[in-house]
Each structure stands twice: as structure tokens, then as C-alpha cells.
């Protein structure tokens, strides 16, 4: 097995785990963690692409590294925003469930606050 294949498979497994957690686990913090795992998988995949696509005679293609750094910054900001929102939500309502009250009941929102 070449190293590209090993890292590629690892990326796929990490991304799959993250996706599973983000969709199936009802707790928002787990969803945030799942998103981070999913993102890590994609970044790792980008690293594999850099290695494989070493087109210009370098040992690795430098462009994906620059893009991954940007992607990490974006994912970091997203996580910070999500965690802040979650904390504020918990402070305000005492709950961290994403499916209660008006939002989960769907269309017929009768709650008037």
C-alpha cells in the first residue's frame, strides 16, 4: 500500500465518522465535534491531493497547503461561533436541545412570545 492510499483511506474514515456524528447525534456539541472531524477528514484528503499532484517537480504541491490553512481558519471561526451560540442558548433557556417547542413542531407555530 502506498502512503497516498493509506492517508486517503484514513481521510475517508475520519470524514465518515464525522458525518455520522453530525447527522445522527442529537446533542449540538457532538454535532459541532462531528463537523470538526468531517472537516479534518477533508483537510487530510487535501494533503493527499497535494502529495499526489506534485506536478511542478516539487516534493509536494504547495497550493493545497495554502488552501488547507485557510480552510482551518474558517473551520476554527465556525466552531467558535457555534460554541458561543450554544453557550448563549443554554444560558438563556437552560436547555441545549435542538428539537423542542416551536422550532421542532414545524409549520404550525402557535407560540407567541
Amino acid at each position: 500500500m502506498s502512503e497516498v492510499l493509506v492517508f486517503g483511506l484514513c481521510a475517508a474514515v475520519v470524514a465518515g465518522l464525522g458525518l455520522y456524528g453530525a447527522i445522527v447525534d442529537p446533542r449540538p456539541l457532538r454535532k459541532i465535534l462531528g463537523f470538526n472531524l468531517l472537516g479534518s477528514g477533508v483537510f487530510l484528503f487535501f494533503g493527499v491531493v497535494a502529495r499526489r499532484g506534485a506536478a511542478a517537480g516539487f516534493p509536494g504541491d504547495p497550493v493545497p497547503q495554502a488552501l488547507v490553512i485557510t480552510g482551518i481558519v474558517v473551520a476554527f471561526s465556525a466552531t467558535a461561533l457555534a460554541v458561543t451560540l450554544l453557550l448563549r442558548f443554554f444560558e438563556t433557556t437552560g436547555s441545549s436541545s435542538l428539537r423542542d417547542g416551536a422550532a421542532a413542531d414545524g409549520a404550525r407555530d402557535t407560540a407567541e412570545s
Binding site: 453530525a22 463537523f35 465556525a78 451560540l85 442558548f89 417547542g101
Partner: peptide, 16 residues
Amino acid sequence: GETLQAALRYLLFALL
């Protein structure tokens, strides 16, 4: 609280 929940749902789904 209602709108915080709506924002959190929006953000998490948009991130996916």
C-alpha cells in the same frame, strides 16, 4: 431562546 436555537440550527446545517 427561540431565535438562538434557530441560529444554531442554521449554522450547524450550513456548515454541513
